[in-house]
Design a binder for these strands. Sequence first.
DNA 1: ATAACAAGACCAACTAGTCGGTCTTACATA
DNA 2: TATGTAAGACCGACTAGTTGGTCTTGTTAT
Lengths: 223, 223
Amino acid sequence: MNARKFKRSGCFTELKDRIIETSLRLFERHGFHGVSVQEIVKKSGSSKGGFYHHFQSKEELLFVIHDYFASYVLTKAQEAMSSSIRPTDKMQRIIQSFVKAFDLYKPHISVFYQESIYLKPPYDQAIKEKRKQYKEAIFSIIQEGIDKGEFRPELPVQITSMSILGMVNWSYKWYKRDGEKTIDEIANIYVDLILHSLLTDQAKQDAAFQSYFLNDPLDSYSN
Amino acid sequence: MNARKFKRSGCFTELKDRIIETSLRLFERHGFHGVSVQEIVKKSGSSKGGFYHHFQSKEELLFVIHDYFASYVLTKAQEAMSSSIRPTDKMQRIIQSFVKAFDLYKPHISVFYQESIYLKPPYDQAIKEKRKQYKEAIFSIIQEGIDKGEFRPELPVQITSMSILGMVNWSYKWYKRDGEKTIDEIANIYVDLILHSLLTDQAKQDAAFQSYFLNDPLDSYSN
DNA sequence: ATAACAAGACCAACTAGTCGGTCTTACATA
DNA sequence: TATGTAAGACCGACTAGTTGGTCTTGTTAT
């Protein structure tokens, strides 16, 4: 019904999206400064005019890419936080939602981490704020887990949080969609590793927490 | 005794080192493409002639910085690997040596990870090879740990290795020398987290492994 | 004499961004 | 239904500036 969706070129993808997708692929491989605007517009079948009609500057394009991913992940985290009660369960959900984002937004994420240093004022502020919110979500889960007796009290909240974030974030350096593990398998491995680090001995033996762990391959012979 | 060390300027640091140190600080903050050769030579109190006397190109300077850190860490890893017998102990030593490198080479490491995408042939090959060797060192420790019954057999070697590497590597994003934890404390936290993930229940209860863990703060009241 | 620089003019290549202009489309008017 | 018009989408030649790198000349210490 909305006629604006039909472009005169007969193609349904809008130019703006085409530019973003093209530059995403180029930035991922060659970096923000390794790709010129000329190359972007050429490879996306566009022009300088088209580019600057949609973006105020090359840096705004970088910001759009950053924000796209940051907003998505933060939203998912907030969903996971409010959808559950047990800290352990929140942690599982937040990890799973994050790891799954690698499957959807690998190029965004690569650009997000690789080129974050090149985002300058005023663009960097909005992104920094979202990073901070995400970090604090993890902090609060771990603190809550300690308070409720699920997580080990001797763990320092901030360093533990940062090591979890590092572990998961680093995936962008090596994850490939056609690798031997699916993204869900990887997420489950992370959950297993993280919860083995976090949970108290008591919680680990609780039957309610067994489903978060990987199965011991030898277990299959034991019944 | 070596007279070459005495520069006519009255300063003992050689120009080459001064250039490297200056560019290190600049690259860390503004990125490889955010700093021009002009700025480097100006801020290091040098000149273009001096710069190109020591470096064939700006990219060779980037390579030198990369190689400096990569060689150091790889050497340390190999030392740790051959200095011990138990996989658990190897893991502790390799983590500690790596984390300590953050204190010594924070700027090198930042540049190493942030600008790695901008190292182009032929410089990238030598670095890639050293990265690969480091990765495989971790692989072999984990495999050995599983084979010897210290580490949980259900863990997939590669993903587990990558998550350890990610956890530690990520430190460059947030570690500050004047933070509230010392670098040794951070290393011990990492070792605790990692070994809680890796060790079998049996090994965890073994008295020989207790020294790798953080103390439960409540324990101090229990005797 | 020679190596280790300093100083800086200079160049070719390249870059982000601009600007005048063209073509569609939507919509108001008659 | 036909038509005028304004807005938005897009093109591409062009500009002004920057960059890595070269080269020449001169100076100092050994």
